[in-house]
Amino acid sequence: MGDGALITTKNLVKQYPIGGRKFTALKNINLTFETGEFTGLVGPSGSGKTTLLNIIGALDNPTEGHVIVMGQDTRELKHRQAARLRTEHLGFVFQTFNLLPVYTVFENVEFPLLLLEMSGADRKKAVLKALEWVDLSDKIKSRPAQLSGGECQRVAVARAMVKRPKIVLADEPTANLDAANSHNILETMFRLNKELNTTYIFATHDEKVIGYLRRKVTLTDGQVIEDVSTTPRYPTANEEMS
């Protein structure tokens, strides 16, 4: 655990009451994530990866132990403070995109900046830049219903990245995409990770995602059974790296 760690989990335990018993979703997790990582929490369904992602994202609290995100112990944060942490430093990418259907692509990407109370001119500049990253500058006036699945997920990535957060948490971001779109979106995220030094943490069991990772944390039954550095095996990713 380095001193400059972006995220640290200490003896993290998460239990859920099920019936009269307690189900332990995470068991004594000790992990450290540094700035600029491109890491995956990998494992089968029910292994605890989404739970861990929730706790890192200050959406849930551990039953025992601590999670320190950018120097803040999420367990100590009140609801508003946790919301503030998410607003300022965290971006989310969801499996089902979750774009707001009544808003245009531009407005969907603009939304996180409104929460930051950024000026109109700055917002416009940032949104156009984010759409340029995901190559959707020509779709700013489109509604989500007019876009393909791959385009929707690229909008979701732009929305997560527009405020240039320190951390992006992505839960199965390719689960609803075909292979071509999956690679497209992963390459985009990989490139942004390089360009902006944003830390990406994925919860995934998709081999395509795993092929882009530089670190793989494998979870089984709520325990870390492997934490290894990997070499991205997809050519585009390697080209980007070099």
Binding site: L59, R84, L100, F111, P112, L115
Partner: peptide, 15 residues
């Protein structure tokens, strides 16, 4: 539900 969920996830306070 989705909209509210996204708004909360992106840091909008419940209140």
């Amino acid at each position: 539900y989705g909209e509210v969920g996204v708004r909360l996830a992106f840091g909008e306070a419940k209140s």
